[in-house]
Each structure stands twice: as structure tokens, then as C-alpha cells.
Amino acid sequence: MTEPLLETRDLVIRFGGVTAADHVSLKIEAGRNLAIIGPNGAGKTTFLNICSGWIKPSAGSVHFEGEDITRLPPRKIVTRGVARAFQIPQLFTEHTALENLLIAASARDGLRNPLRSMHGIDARDEMMHLLDMVNCADVADRVVVELSEGERKLIDIAVALALKPRLLLMDEPTSGVASSQKDEIMEILIKALSEANVTSVFVEHDMSIVQTYADEVAVWNAGNVQLRGTPSEVLEHPDVIRDVIGEEIA
């Protein structure tokens, strides 16, 4: 069996009295998009925060392509090939959509020349293509504050993709977006991911999205993976229907 892309071993994290991750051991295989579902407060976002270095676990370790990245700061983990998109888009709000991507490319390529305009960098075409891939080419020159939440979410993901990661962690890519747009966004996204050959882990509350777009599903409950399998296996499981989906409907 090949080495997993990302692996956590016995992750533990406690906030005050709450255990948000309780000895979590999880393997993520390259090429299989994994959806994480579960009730609110189960520790799904915390898991992404640990994997990307934002929070340090109380015990256990995180490995990316075999390397122990547990103690690395987020920026070092990013340079290893793990990018992150956020539930609330994290963008440079006073810059245009294209500029956000150009800044990402500048960071990725370590550009240092203080006399060359960022708009003239070699990666400009590549970034325009990326904007096109997420269907945002028409807003390339609009300042981010003026854009819709859906557009910002897509640009947030494009910024992450601009770093050419091998793994992308996404926190609710379709939250805050009108339900009519959710499928459209996911279509664009999954297509962009497979074009760029990026594996993704995404937290999601919408079960139809999970059913349609995930290759695998992990059910998060009370700080651990309760169940893992293909979407149809998991979503039809009585415990999941009771604990997770029931809550979604309620």
C-alpha cells in the first residue's frame, strides 16, 4: 500500500474541559476527496486547524508525505504542499481578485525584485487561467470587498490552488452561498481540483453535496472519527442518520 498523503496519529486536543480531538488517527490517500461531516462543535474545523498548523495538538502527531509537520507553523506547512481555504474567505480585501492571486504566486515563487511590478510577473497568465477555472475571470479587476460571498469563496479557493498544493483543506466550501449556487460551486471546484491534480479534504454540512462530490466520507462525532466509508455506505448508516443527518434536518 502506498504512503498516505496526510496521516494523523493519536491526535489529542483539549480546550478547557472540552476534548475536541480524542486520539484521532486518520489516513488521507492521494486522489480521493474526503468529506468530513458531523454535528456542530464536534471538532471538524479544529481538525483542519491542527492539520494546517494553526493550533498545536496536546498530543499526537501529523505527518505529510511521511514528514512530521506537527510542530511547524502554518507557513512552513504551506510550503510543504498543504493549502487551506476557509469558511469565511481570507482575502486581501482592498486588492482585486487578480491581485490576490498574483500575491499568492509571488509568495509561492519567492519573488524578491523590488523594482518589478507584481502585475508583470511571469505567473500572470497562469493566475488568469486559474481565475477562469473557478469562473471568476470576469471579476478579475474588481476589488474583493465589492464581490459576492460566492465569488469570494471561489477566489479564496483559487488563492489556495495558486500555491500548487498537493492537498487542499477546505472548511465548508459552500456555506454562506445561496443553495441554488451550491452545486455550481462544487462542480467548478471538483473540476478545478482534478485538473490541478489536488486532493482535498472538506468539511461539509450539506449531505447532497457530500453524496455527489466526495469519494469518501468521515463522520466526526465527539472528537473522533465515528465511521468512515463511501458516501452511500456512510449516509445510509442508521447511526449517521440519527446523529448527524437528523440534526441537519432539525
Partner: peptide
Amino acid sequence: TRLEYLGI
């Protein structure tokens, strides 16, 4: 936050 997550 985004800057950090650009690897900078």
C-alpha cells in the same frame, strides 16, 4: 491570516 497561509 491569509499571508501566513501563503507561506509567508
